[in-house]
């Protein structure tokens, strides 16, 4: 009986092949829902600062005058809180994750210079 169970397990393992993912050779396993890193469509950003205000980890800096949106990738916890608050829906989570490194990565995005249209709406305090 025991030997039968064991033989079956061995057979199953022979047919199925290894369970282990061959990670560095095969791509990492992600799903469409995976929150990997935060990305911004900087063209749509109005620099309102709501994401900065609500970030639980204080990873985001927004500078309205210089039109920059900065994220400290080594502080961001990818919770998706800012994505919910963004009034222009220009923030989204990408599936791939930030690569480990020897130095903290701080990504800065600079928005295009606005055309004659005055910059302001959507800046109410939360």
């Amino acid at each position: 009986m025991k030997a039968g169970v064991m033989a079956l397990t061995v057979l199953k393992n022979l047919i199925k092949g290894p369970y282990t993912s061959r990670y560095p050779y095969a791509p990492a396993k992600v799903s469409p829902a995976t929150r990997g890193y935060l990305d911004v469509t900087i063209e749509d950003c109005i620099f309102c600062g709501l994401c900065r205000m609500h970030c639980p980890a204080d990873a985001i800096e927004v500078n309205k005058t210089e039109r920059t949106w900065t994220i400290n990738r080594f502080r961001c916890v990818i919770c998706g809180c800012c994505v919910d608050y963004c009034p222009k829906k220009c923030l989204h989570c990408e599936q791939s994750y930030t690569v480990p490194g020897t130095e903290p990565v701080i990504a800065q995005y600079t928005g295009p210079v606005p055309e004659e249209k005055p910059v302001q709406p959507g800046e109410s305090s939360a």
Partner: peptide
Amino acid sequence: DVLERTTG
């Protein structure tokens, strides 16, 4: 896997 697929 299920958790990642459904919640991220």
